[in-house]
Write a protein that binds this DNA or RNA. Structure first.
Lengths: 189, 189
DNA sequence: GTCTATATTCAGATAGAC
DNA sequence: GTCTATCTGAATATAGAC
């Protein structure tokens, strides 16, 4: 009664956990195979190399992330648009929570193995940053855009560090914070 | 005319760059030795193991970080205190910029090798988060504290991604943003 | 303090039987 | 699809001469 690709998915899931827990480089294919209950050789039947396994893990997130940015650039930059895009950013991170966490926790370890995709990713993030900063941005606006993208990471870490807070409260609080940062200090206080 | 410890320092510096560029696990001691212009065996004269090298690299930052948090807990939680502590956090990150960057970029790769220090670090960060959230914090206040700590990372990434912005502008902008996030949306708009 | 070996271990990857 | 068995290379680490 095995669905096609069941083993493949189990490999993927265990690999995500191990990679993000102990790092991509330090995790051996033997460990992954052991957890799944198969041998290294069987693993190689499903993924031709360790790098291919990583790429398969990461690609869905990168694809959706790129879609969000493309969407952002296709429209104007009203406050409502900014809010909509920020929300989609957070939702994308939460939808691919485990993979996004791997990205945040093992950046240096992963990027070399993702060399073929890294150019696209860097460009995507750069375009998102530029869009968030708005048309003809000041230096301060550009710093704020960087700060907002860092801030959104809390969508992934808040649950882990705080324990019990519900996703929805995290999302609302972070979106509000992001908007405050982008708007900056109001004049006249 | 060699100052005592000159080779040791050069090893440390090259290791920081390589570790944070390609990850701790993937960087071999041979690569480090090659860059310094010595052999692996000589490197082992200065550091008894790869792990000891990493600990020597990381400890100064952790010590100072702990000092900041201890200082925070020893005083009250007025807006002026919060501002002072946030500033010290940013300054600490900037003072140990390269090491802090290594920490952010290779978390998963590094933590297993830092096992003896990790307990302290986790506790320190947890205490800082609690202090920032203030006495008897709401769930939202705790999320905001997490968000602020993520936001401060931009002190390290802003320079790299934006290129030319001066440190001081980054620091001022981030401190202002952090305060806005902690204060939250003002009522009555 | 630095060198040239070398011991040891374990990774990623392949071949071929079942 | 999964197995056993094996190859190959490179890594950390050590011993001992200079």
């Amino acid at each position: 009664m095995d669905v096609a690709g069941a083993t493949r998915d189990r490999i993927r899931d265990e690999a995500i956990v191990l990679f993000s827990d102990r790092g991509y480089a330090t995790t051996s294919l033997r460990e992954i195979a052991d957890r799944v209950g198969i041998t290294k050789a069987s693993l190689y039947y499903h993924f031709p190399s360790k790098q291919d396994l990583l790429v398969a893990i990461v690609r869905p997130l990168l694809t959706q992330w790129r879609d969000v940015v493309t969407d952002a650039e296709s429209g104007p930059h009203t406050p409502a648009d900014v809010r909509r895009i920020l929300r989609r950013c957070v939702d994308t991170m939460l939808a691919h929570r485990a993979v996004a966490g791997l990205f945040l926790r093992d950046t240096a370890g992963i990027l070399p193995a993702l060399a073929p995709l890294v150019g696209d990713l860097v460009e995507t993030n750069s375009r998102l940053r530029d869009w968030l900063a708005g048309p003809t941005p000041s230096a301060i606006a550009r710093i704020r855009a960087v700060a907002v993208l860092e801030l959104l990471r809390a969508a992934l870490t808040a649950g882990a560090t705080l324990g019990d807070v519900p996703d929805d409260l995290v999302r609302r609080t972070l979106l509000e914070s992001a908007e405050l940062v982008l708007a900056g200090r109001e004049e006249g206080a």
